[in-house]
């Protein structure tokens, strides 16, 4: 009798313990999320991406950063986002017209630098991506880039206890799906704000242009800002700048997305921030120097039906003006951004 009672009590205690444990999983063990502030630099417009349904947190940013540098997002493990988006090149691919992808293949467009992305309404050279959160899907599944499937990436992340813990911290439970992965990646990419160049310091009254830089700035304002509008140094429009079509790639740019012949050979106006770090230039990386790009506008514009009126008659820039312009464009390099340890791979 006594023994039975003892056993009953033990069973009760064990049962109660198990139930309590089962309940516990739902709550209170979660690590507190540390909110992260997104600061709009002085003089910048309101961002397009407003972090709706994706509250920025320290842990979300760290998870996004881990994903950004993780080769497992690619089929053979060799091509993390960071393989084409290198910090020392302002997150473009250093010194490559095209980037390397899976199975010894090349991309078909020049990798753009990643900074100030939250101010972009459309992404990619052809504007095919309509929202920052879904952009990573394009390189992940592209056969010549990361060559992986979404399901495989999610399965690999689920296999990793470290990721399960991080997702749980950020999103409340261990569930890992594409939506959560993309939101975390967005938190990292969104924080890549570049607004600390000499140009910015001059604007804030913290530094002065040299004489050449100042003259170059005046040339820039007279002849370049119609497309490369301050402070983002792009108006985010799509334009045909008179680059003859690449005969091998036959890349028609924006028309590939819209199907509209008026968009033939139109490509996104790239920001000129960090321009000296992101060479080569053009959607297919055909120009290896800033000087060569300026010379294109001075001498080499090829007119077609959709060529932009602003460049149709070429842009008159004298040799003197060009030297000053080059001096000014160097003030757009944000060395602090390029060296910011916060954005560098941990380990």
């Amino acid at each position: 009798m006594m023994r039975r009672t003892v056993i009953s009590i033990l069973i009760m205690l064990l049962g109660g313990f198990l139930f309590l444990e089962a309940c516990k999983k739902q709550g209170d063990t979660a690590t507190a999320l540390i909110p992260l502030q997104f600061t709009v630099p002085v003089g910048f417009p309101d961002p397009v991406y407003k972090f709706e349904n994706n509250p920025l947190t320290q842990q979300g940013f760290q998870l996004g950063k881990k994903l950004f540098f993780d080769g497992r997002l690619s089929k053979d493990g060799n091509f993390p986002c960071a393989s084409c988006h290198q910090q020392f090149a302002a997150f473009a691919t250093f010194d490559h017209p095209f980037s390397h992808g899976f199975n010894n293949q090349f991309t078909t467009r020049n990798a753009p630098g990643l900074f100030n992305v939250v101010w972009m309404k459309e992404l990619h050279w052809d504007g095919g991506i309509n929202h920052i959160e879904v952009q990573p899907l394009a390189p992940i599944v592209a056969e010549n880039e990361m060559a992986e499937t979404i399901d495989n990436v999610i399965a690999k992340l689920k296999d990793d206890a470290g990721y399960r813990q991080m997702f749980k911290t950020v999103f409340g439970d261990e569930e890992i799906n594409s939506q959560r992965m993309l939101k975390a990646l967005t938190q990292f990419v969104a924080m890549l704000v570049s607004a600390g160049s000499k140009y910015d310091k001059v604007k804030r009254g913290e530094a002065y242009f040299t004489e050449a830089e100042q003259s170059g700035y005046e040339v820039f304002q007279a002849k370049c800002t119609a497309c490369h509008a301050e402070p983002l140094f792009t108006d985010n429009s799509f334009r045909n700048t008179g680059l003859p079509v690449n005969e091998i790639l036959k890349d028609i740019g924006r028309m590939h997305i819209t199907g509209n012949p008026a968009d033939s050979l139109k490509f996104k106006v790239p920001s000129l921030r960090n321009v000296y770090a992101t060479f080569p230039y053009g959607h297919d990386g055909r120009y290896y120097s800033v000087s060569a790009v300026i010379d294109h506008y001075r001498y080499a514009v090829v007119n077609g039906p959709a060529t932009d009126p602003l460049v149709k008659n070429k842009i008159a820039i004298s040799d003197y003006e060009k030297q000053d312009l080059l001096a000014f464009l160097q003030t757009l390099t944000d060395s602090a951004f390029i060296a910011n340890k916060r954005f560098a791979q941990t380990e």
Binding site: N53, N54, H124, G128, I129, N130, H131, I132, E133, V134, L137, A138, I140, V141, A142, T149, I150, D151, I154, N177, S178, Q179, L182, K183, T186, H256, I257
Partner: peptide, 24 residues
């Protein structure tokens, strides 16, 4: 819902009903 970023459940792009190169 075609321009609202990353979505879940039946709209999860992993369902194979989302164009990754031309969002939609």
């Amino acid at each position: 819902d075609n321009v609202s970023g990353a979505q879940g459940d039946d709209l999860d792009p992993a369902r194979g009903m989302f164009w990754t190169w031309n969002s939609g």
